[in-house]
Design a protein around this nucleic acid. Structure first.
Lengths: 231, 231
DNA sequence: CAGAAGTGTGAATGGAGTGTGAACGCTCCC
DNA sequence: GGGAGCGTTCACACTCCATTCACACTTCTG
């Protein structure tokens, strides 16, 4: 199971004359983020995800800029200040930015291209804390950190070798699914690999040993078929 | 005598096929800045104004991106690191940004509208005048001062060479994350560098030696994968 | 120009990691 | 109950990888 997607607040005015918010929401979703519409600062508290806000996207409404700017200002004042703030603004309103530097972190011309918005968001995320959280694979008590090449069982780190790690990762990416030895040799060891089926057995055995008696059952044997990783 | 206009370095390739640099220079001048064309990092030192660089504008040449990126990287490594860096990039090359966040501060789609460039520059200037960025990187007993190019372990200064420092800084910016030798060669030594993987090993070894026996374990080897910096 | 410091490369070394064969044990089915 | 089939376990040999060393090359400095 992948880590929860970073949640972004998308400011929408009650008199949502523009449909830009729709475009924003769609773009965020396509880029793998979690867009949540908010109408005012109270919504920021009410709808705050457990993981907090990864940032906010604020379209500056052409017919009522002050409301949008007020939202930006207030979003910085709540208990858990929202950063970063990306402002969406029409080309003819660029001059408004000059006196409001402290109210936004980056801006994007409207209409916008989705890939530019995504690029700006990713750059902001990186700046404000080294980007999105680490890529984790979790399955019950097991968690695998794909960035650090570390696996842990109920928080206790497992000292795995390269092949053990690769095998476990492969199994954990398709929890519950049974893989034959042949498939495992192909997908984990490589297509050109031509070794005995005993190889898989032994690595499973070593994994189970490191899991400890308590969790060894997570790797299940399916007789005359292969192996499967369960919770 | 009026205050000198902020000076911006504009990167131009010798084979300046694109005329984007001309546009950049004109826009900067119109906005009241002082554009100075530079062809490489040596020019940054040779033509450095008395007031220092206010920033740099770097067009990413479509036919030779790596030269432009190398300039960005090196501009951050000179004695008086150039910040901020604004990158000018074609829409079809946006994906290049994802792995180079540390090499630029903001980007602008090419072709660009002069008023957007001016707005971006003014926002960058405002930001750099505010809180100077994270000039200190800390990780357990290790602290790295990005401004003075000094690293220290439990307060004791480490006498690092240039490459040792760059390698350590890169690792410390993503604590815990494993990097392969290939990635390290690309991102620390440079995309255009094509050397043996032993180079990385040796520099790691020298870093560990300077860390001393007590802290050598901070740089961990992940067998058949790469290296990782931990607390 | 001599010397020092920084950096990259090839080769030797040691060891962790990996694969294999054989012995053992379990389960199912005739 | 006995055998066939399959998985498990063990010990051992070998491969590959990281480490280390020595040295060549470049750059800088006095």
């Amino acid at each position: 199971m992948p880590t929860a997607a970073p949640a972004f607040a998308v400011f929408v005015t009650p008199s949502s004359s523009s449909n830009s918010a729709v475009e924003v929401v769609r773009t965020l979703a396509m880029a793998g983020f979690d867009p949540i519409e908010v109408a005012d600062v109270n919504d920021l508290k009410a709808h705050r995800p457990d993981t907090g806000w990864a940032g906010a996207i604020v379209p500056i409404e052409a017919d009522d800029p002050s409301t949008s700017w007020a939202f930006c200002r207030d979003a910085r004042r709540v208990n858990d200040p929202v950063v970063p703030i990306l402002v969406l603004i029409g080309g003819s309103h660029l001059s408004e930015l000059s006196e409001r530097h402290e109210q936004f972190d980056d801006f994007l011309l409207s209409p916008f291209h989705p890939s530019e918005m995504e690029a700006r968001i990713r750059h902001l995320l990186w700046r404000s804390g080294q980007g999105p959280g680490p890529e984790l694979v979790e399955l019950g008590p097991l968690s695998i950190n794909l960035e650090t090449y570390q696996a842990a069982l109920t928080g206790r780190p497992l000292d795995l070798t390269f092949m053990e790690y690769e095998l476990l990762k492969f199994l954990a990416l398709s929890p519950g699914k049974v893989f034959s030895r042949e498939v495992l040799l192909n997908r984990v060891w490589g297509y050109e690999y031509y070794g005995g089926a005993r190889t898989v057995d032994v690595h499973v055995r070593r994994l189970r040993a490191k899991f400890g008696e308590e969790h060894a059952h997570m790797i299940q044997t399916v007789r005359s078929v292969g192996y499967r990783l369960d919770k």
